[in-house]
Write a protein that binds this DNA or RNA. Structure first.
Lengths: 224, 224
DNA sequence: AGAATGCTTCGATGAGGATCAAACCATGCG
DNA sequence: CGCATGGTTTGATCCTCATCGAAGCATTCT
């Protein structure tokens, strides 16, 4: 008999289809209401509510009450990382789909990972930022380079304020299998991309689709 | 309703206590027989056998038949990574144990992670190898440095033969939260440590305990 | 061949948990 | 207020699946 952290408890929380769908939906990064999650999971409201209590009790979700709305979100980056790891195995092990549907293709290029950008574009961006010495990569510990503050300030992102979460973090990309940028800086960049309308979120998907001029602007700023 | 890789299927496989215990046991890296796994999981042999079929069908295990023995092992590094990710969340979310027992302390210093060394010692080792330019770290992609071949050849490890698995890989350490060395080189180094009797495996645990002279030898070779 | 060991399959049992309808709170609106 | 909307709780139903004893294969040892 083994001891230690109760991994079965956590895994079984993810192991129910309804809950798994809810968690996948929340990987989009935006917090959702119980009704929205019920819809995503394809179950009735009471059922969803029951599942949400369990996920809360298990510490996988956070809850923000606003008036009569209650917004559920992932508890943190660690939980998001776990979901990605499980997704990776499911992808590798699951039925090899002959044709990767069009939505999958878009997902590989750019998608939302919790609160930051993932996919080929995100990996390329981090590589380029490191090449230009704006960020310094040393193991998973990504740090700000000397010119980082001025560079990001120029595009309206403040890297000085120090919140609880680290500014930079590496996050292993699910499709590319290399790291992309997470942390508050990664989140701020995604915010910027959406605020500038360089890209829009695909409905009911994590995919992020750049507009032609948006892509140009993005490349100018981050890959230039 | 969501589509995509069936994450619930994978997670529910890990979500049963008996199966979770088996997988945890296999994180030790050595393949085990059905009877050994039944003992680990605290279930009868028929029950264990049933669980093992499910894990096989789910693609989480590999099977090597040798005579009348059937050795079950983890299907690969990706599966091991997933287990570590889940363990991390379970640890973070679970009941904060006031005192980390002595076994936990040993685990933090050095333990087996699938087929290579993990823990503080392993992280320190990788850092030092990178500092000395024996290995080159660039993102998760760790590569051999110019002097790697001769350096490892000197201690009887051949880094030339190219198997299917990559020679070097970074693996995020569960306790230290930084990367340590995985891949065939990581596995070879662990083999060396155990072959030279610098350390021994703690019984029924993933902990690795160095002997005083063994630690000295290890530090001389890898941290020197 | 016969016996012993290692493991899987079969069958029956039982418990946990997913589900939804209906009833029940809570907040916001007119 | 009273009604509507968003959410949770309760209760009853149903079904999956974990469990183990007994029997069945397979491989090795003598």
């Amino acid at each position: 008999m083994r001891e230690g952290p109760d991994i079965a408890r956590i895994a079984s929380l993810v192991g129910d289809p309804a809950r798994a769908n809810m968690l996948s939906a929340l990987m989009g990064g935006t917090a959702l209401t119980a009704s929205e999650l019920a819809l995503e999971a394809g179950v009735s409201l009471p059922t969803a509510s029951s599942h949400l209590s369990k996920l809360m009790e298990g510490g996988l979700l956070t809850l923000a009450s606003q008036g009569r709305h209650r917004y559920y979100g992932l508890a943190g980056p660690q939980v998001a990382g776990m979901i990605e790891a499980i997704t990776g195995v499911a992808e590798a092990v699951g039925p090899k789909r002959v044709r990767p549907g069009p939505r999958d293709a878009a997902m590989r290029v750019a998608r939302v990972c919790y609160d930051h950008l993932a996919g080929e574009q995100a990996v390329a961006m981090l590589d380029r930022l490191v090449d230009r010495n704006i960020l310094l990569r040393d193991d998973k510990e990504i740090r700000l380079g000397p010119s980082a503050a001025s560079h990001f300030a120029a595009i309206g992102i403040d890297v000085y304020t120090k919140p609880r979460r680290p500014v930079c973090r590496a996050c292993l990309d699910w499709s590319v299998r290399r790291s992309h940028l997470a942390g508050t800086l990664g989140a701020a960049i995604l915010d910027k991309i959406l605020a500038e309308k360089w890209a829009r979120r695909e409905k009911d998907s994590r995919a992020v689709v750049f507009t032609p001029p948006g892509r140009q602007a993005f490349e100018k700023v981050f890959l230039g």
